[in-house]
């Protein structure tokens, strides 16, 4: 599948935003601290930025509001509806924290819950597609949720070492979610690669009873929408290397930096060392998750490619 930049940016940024919103909503940060107030603004900005980015790949973005209508059958529609619903309690919480130094328990829980359900819906857009076998695994939504929480908690560590919360607690969450996310992801990738193809050129053409089927001539000489959108191929050796880079950038390095930041904050209080370590952890984590999300698309094979010999 073609790894569209707008969708990668959308799923990674909004995932980070919803992860942070979940921690903020659970009341793990001191609402009186300046860093917490900035955290609310950041969470809202990440979610909104992601949603705007997601409309960039539409052919007719001016009609995007119509996507809120078919929540009964469409995961994409459900995602849109929940994204808007999640904004309401999160904005209320942000208002209470920024202007009144207060944390509101019920809107906070609603923001955390609705945000995570939104991430689940995003994952199910892919998870519900039978045509892409790699995606239709049960672990797909699990990995999306864990990566959202891991990015959110890593960003939360940056806020925590800036005085918003107890650094150790948030750093512990960041490391736990990051480890869990990569364990789930590795399992997902290995399982997905071990699957026997559901559809083959033989079932796609129905000619398997005569023999083995191989594409002789494509419909047209050049690429078309289908091959551009669904025929993306990445060399296996590069994919494996990139997966290693993703684990390094999005797992090992940020986990270590988060621990360093928490140690520094514990030893010296909020300061430049802790801030820098946490800041670099966020950047590295985002880069790693970005590569992970690129591979999520690039490595996925669509059933229609059975007609195109890819």
């Amino acid at each position: 599948m073609h790894p569209a930049l707008s969708i990668i940016v959308f799923t990674t940024l909004s995932g980070m935003g919803y992860g942070l919103a979940a921690l903020l909503g659970l009341g793990l940060f001191d609402p009186a601290a300046l860093a917490t107030k900035i955290g609310y603004v950041l969470a809202l900005a990440l979610i909104a930025g992601g949603l705007v980015s997601s409309t960039l790949h539409l052919g007719n973005p001016q009609r995007a509001w119509r996507a809120l209508s078919q929540w009964r059958t469409s995961w994409l529609s459900r995602e849109g509806v929940l994204a808007i619903l999640a904004f309401i309690p999160l904005t209320i919480c942000a208002y209470a924290a920024i202007f009144h130094d207060r944390h509101l328990i019920l809107p906070g829980l609603a923001a955390a819950g609705l945000g995570l359900v939104t991430v689940y819906c995003t994952a199910m857009i892919y998870g519900s597609l039978k045509t892409v076998q790699l995606w239709s695994q049960r672990l797909t939504p699990v990995t999306y949720l864990l990566f959202a929480l891991a990015s959110g908690a890593t960003l939360g560590t940056l806020l925590a070492v800036s005085g918003a919360a107890q650094p150790w607690l948030i750093a512990f969450l960041a490391v736990s979610f990051t480890v869990a996310a990569w364990l789930a992801k590795r399992r997902w990738r290995n399982d997905g690669k071990a699957l026997a193809p559901l559809s083959t050129p033989e079932t796609a053409t129905g000619l398997g009873s005569i023999g083995r089927v191989r594409l002789f001539e494509r419909p047209h000489i050049n690429d078309n929408y289908l091959t551009r959108e669904m025929g993306f191929q990445v060399a296996r050796k590069h994919a494996d290397k990139l997966f290693g880079i993703a684990i390094l950038l999005g797992g090992l390095i940020p986990a270590a930096l988060v621990v360093v930041a928490a140690l520094a904050a514990g030893a010296m209080g909020p300061g430049l060392t802790a801030f820098l370590a946490a800041f670099l952890a966020v950047l590295s984590h985002y880069a790693g998750v970005f590569v992970e999300r690129w591979l999520f698309f690039a490595e996925a094979r669509h059933a229609v490619m059975n007609y195109y010999g890819r």
Partner: peptide
């Protein structure tokens, strides 16, 4: 008139029956 051009239906079709008009 209602299509936003998100392309998800083309992803859902195993036959490649749908193509986005660019």
């Amino acid at each position: 008139d209602m299509c936003i051009g998100c392309g998800l239906c083309a992803w859902a079709c195993p036959y490649g029956a749908r193509e986005m008009d660019l």
